[in-house]
Simulated assay, not measured.
Amino acid sequence: MKKLVLFAVILNFLSYKIIYAQELIGFTEELPGLIELDGDQLKGPVIEKVRKIFKKAKLKENLKVYPWARSYEMAKREKNYFVFPMAKNSEREKYFNFVGVLFNVKTYLYQKTENIIKIKTLEEAKKYSICVVRNDIRDQYLTEKNFPNLIRFSDQNEAIHALIAKKCDFAICAENIEFIWKKNVKENLNYLVKKSFHVKEINGDRYLSISKQTDPEIIKKLATAMKEINK
């Protein structure tokens, strides 16, 4: 009996060591004001929070910056990969566990300041062309709702500049796009682009998500750590 107990203790210890030794690869993107790349170093309040969660969970992380669509496709097929921030929908829940909310952001339809397109519902926007970020939550939502005129780009910055270049009538972006203008563009884009319609249909919660192939014990550790930090 003592040998069985000792064997169980050793097995649990080894399992813990194996889990802790694994490095989890995290994909994110630059979101000025929240996630920023300073040389080769990631910084910002969201980065600090994610690292705090992993430290609390006693897990190792390796954070990388990639375009959103590439990150999503890579992470959904492999274990020990996580993506943040990510919005939740039924399609993504097939591939990811959503550990917890990191922050909340509103979504808007933007148009050129000189334009006077007025809509009262999102449905009315179907007759206009809309610049979107390929495979992000807004692209997926509008595609599900059968919006016919979606023009896809690799990130929000490209989508907004396409709007300015008159390649579409609207660009659908998270409100934090305005931080990008302030950081990366010398010209004040507030004179060129304006908020046109608040898209309340798209939930603003942004999560830390991890691929479903990952060891459930790792996912549990992260969820517990995040709950403790959010208290």
Score class of each variant (00 low, 15 high):
residue 66 Y to C: 05
residue 141 Y to K: 02
residue 140 Q to P: 10
residue 228 E to W: 11
residue 217 E to W: 13
residue 56 K to F: 14
residue 198 H to V: 13
residue 119 I to V: 14
residue 162 A to K: 02
residue 4 L to M: 12
residue 165 A to K: 11
residue 68 W to H: 10
residue 201 E to F: 12
residue 205 D to G: 12
residue 117 I to Q: 01
residue 191 Y to M: 13
residue 190 N to H: 14
residue 143 T to R: 10
residue 213 Q to I: 07
residue 164 I to P: 02
residue 219 I to V: 11
residue 168 C to S: 06
residue 73 E to T: 14
residue 76 K to Q: 05
residue 149 N to Q: 10
residue 160 I to M: 11
residue 99 V to R: 07
residue 213 Q to W: 07
residue 105 V to C: 09
residue 11 L to G: 03
residue 54 F to V: 08
residue 194 K to T: 14
residue 121 T to G: 13
residue 56 K to H: 13
residue 179 F to D: 12
residue 38 D to P: 03
residue 74 M to E: 12
residue 58 K to L: 14
residue 101 V to Q: 03
residue 108 Y to M: 03
residue 120 K to G: 15
residue 79 K to D: 09
residue 77 R to Y: 12
residue 183 K to F: 00
residue 123 E to K: 13
residue 225 A to C: 09
residue 211 S to I: 01
residue 36 E to N: 08
residue 14 L to K: 04
residue 75 A to D: 06
residue 209 S to T: 06
residue 163 L to M: 05
residue 93 E to G: 07
residue 229 I to T: 00
residue 112 K to I: 05
residue 40 D to R: 09
residue 182 K to R: 15
residue 127 K to L: 13
residue 98 F to V: 03
residue 230 N to K: 12
residue 19 I to M: 02
residue 13 F to N: 05
residue 187 E to K: 15
residue 131 C to F: 06
residue 78 E to C: 07
residue 222 L to N: 02
residue 132 V to L: 12
residue 116 I to R: 13
residue 170 F to W: 03
residue 99 V to T: 11
residue 132 V to F: 04
residue 213 Q to R: 04
residue 227 K to T: 11
